[in-house]
Design a protein around this nucleic acid. Structure first.
Lengths: 346, 346
DNA sequence: CTGAAAGCGCTTACAG
DNA sequence: CTGAAAGCGCTTACAG
């Protein structure tokens, strides 16, 4: 019914092999022949049938994108934007993204994304934390894989990470250069490497500024084990202020937690930045619309998706032996939760 | 390298046709033979190669999921959850979701999702509003298609919609049964059918309660043409209160807009529900965490995705001739932005 | 109920 | 630089 490579070959008066070579860009075809064939292809708007290409070449042209269901539906759209970036870049390589969500627990091998067992992908992107059992399982599959904003100790993968430590350092420099030194930290949820790095960055930056006594003082830190949240910020700041009433600033592990701090301040009839400076991390959609707007660290989410896809393609095509980690730079975004600008909002 | 249907046939001492019939469940195979073959399949954990199946059967086993980039990265995770539901249901039919985002403008035919021109999907789901040109283009392709939370006048598609009018009606009943009648509306952005229906639902419900004078009175309505937002709610309530100082309640077109109203109230040193009742719509993640938590209407997002996928499969397999619209019920969620409960938060 | 065989539309050594 | 041909791993009439 549809037009095939045979038709094109006939019209162009060449063999199907030649048409195939023109399409793939591989091998040698004379310029004359190439142009002739290309003209016919364009004229008929011919697109090779993917399944036939796949079967013959034993490549799928698909990328599996794995993300936890909670991350995909998180309100901050953090990972959605990474997905967006990956999809954009996939187009440039004429590949498709197969999406699969996974729950917090996974049942090996039944619960693993189908494309893994079915050999339906050429490579895999894992965005954000997923059950470690799944990571081990994927490692054993020996399929090219890139992790974005995730890492598992002892498993060597290509990965795209953001520079969490530097981000926190920028926040602390911003505070210290404005004379603030009594700086607390609220967050935790060390199940995720990024979260952990942010706390480490906080400690390192303080030490580098001769504030090691604060970095070491647990009264300045509220850390929890599980998922960060608004409530975590709310409760965390309450506890910190009880222990350290003279606290001048609180660094939150992310924007969501920071809104919890703002919420708590409001409840006790205080506010940022007047009574205490509050900072977030991630620069998610809502961070510019809190009251006051949050000083935070922008993470280029779409770009992380793009870079992840690029790295994966590189791995699929060239199979480099050494695993790479690309650290994506982040950038401080100063808003009013640390220092009021001329547009005073109180 | 990998195990094929031929191997299975050989081990089971039957023909490949029989193995194929066992796998697909089509045709007649004796129970004895079926069991014998199935045992071998299980034993070797054999999975048919998808591309070979596709090529031979001229079915792709893929569903194209189209969503605008702004919707995918919206902070409310509304459409992400619809995607989640579709993906969950796709597994039940052993189909894959191919995701494609589209921008606000689309260039036909170059900018259309690749899987459309390449015949790489058996069916399409469109979630939320996309450029109408794309919808026309897809109609002309005659591929089975289901729209979720979207509609285009004059184009007949299967669709999954939520009962927006009923949702607003529930809000208004809730308000009126508590003695509130001076009810305004903030929202707009009629580019999206759901948005329009919510305003219509507001008007209809008022008329049904003998409040037609309010339904007709433009002083009670703040409507804009473009994307709804926090600012829209903020500005909208300001304008409404200027025109109608005695306003008792404001119904917002969605939760995001409602947070804008809360923000405005705070700025003028007032609050909900004391000075004015505020309601949202959608019940997105953050709506329980605003201050005060929002009374809103829950939309079962994941379920909408599931239903959309089911309807699409039905269409692909059975090709019913009449287009269906399934209206998903919604449910009022009462929180403190309308009436304080015992856990008084002030 | 089962098997032999053609065919799906490509790619890729191979020969020239 | 180009063509003839085998082969990728399935499905599906068709014959029996």
């Amino acid at each position: 019914m549809s037009i095939t490579i045979k038709d094109i070959a006939k019209f162009a008066e060449v063999s199907t092999s030649t048409v195939s070579l023109v399409i793939s860009g591989k091998g040698y075809v004379s310029n004359d022949t190439r142009e002739k064939v290309q003209k016919i292809i364009d004229e008929y708007n011919y697109k090779p049938l993917r399944s036939a290409q796949q079967l013959a070449s034993s490549q799928t042209g698909n990328i599996g994108f794995i993300i936890s269901d909670i991350h995909l539906s998180r309100s901050e759209a953090f990972y959605s934007r990474i997905l967006l970036g990956a999809e954009l870049e996939a187009r440039n390589h004429d590949m498709y993204i197969l999406l699969s969500t996974v729950g917090a627990k996974i049942d090996i091998p039944h619960g693993v994304p189908r494309f893994l067992n079915n050999h339906d992908v050429d490579g895999i992107i894992i965005a954000g934390s997923v059950p470690v059992d799944l990571v081990y399982c994927i490692r054993d599959l020996k399929i090219p894989t890139v992790l974005i904003d995730y890492r598992v100790d002892g498993v060597d993968f290509d990965s795209i990470l953001m520079d969490n430590r530097n981000g926190v350092q920028q926040i602390i420099n911003h505070l210290i250069s404005n004379g603030i030194t009594k700086i607390g930290f609220v967050g935790g949820s060390f199940y995720h490497p990024s979260i952990k790095e942010r706390f480490e960055g906080y400690q390192i930056a303080l030490v580098n500024n001769n504030l090691g006594h604060i970095a070491q003082n647990e009264d300045y830190h509220y850390l929890i084990d599980y998922e960060t949240s608004v409530e975590c910020g709310d409760r965390g700041l309450a506890i910190l202020l009880k222990k350290v009433p003279e606290l001048e600033a609180v660094i939150c592990v992310n924007d969501t937690t920071a809104t919890g701090c703002l919420q708590y301040l409001k409840r006790i009839d205080k506010s940022a930045p007047k009574d205490i400076k509050v900072t977030g991390f991630d620069n998610v959609n809502f961070s510019a619309f809190t009251n006051p707007p949050l000083t935070t660290v922008n993470v280029p989410k779409v770009q992380m998706g793009v870079e992840g896809l690029k790295l994966l393609i590189d791995r699929i095509q060239n199979g480099i032996s050494v695993h790479q980690t690309r650290l994506i730079p982040v950038e401080l975004v100063v808003r009013e939760s640390t220092f009021l600008t001329d547009t005073n909002n109180d």
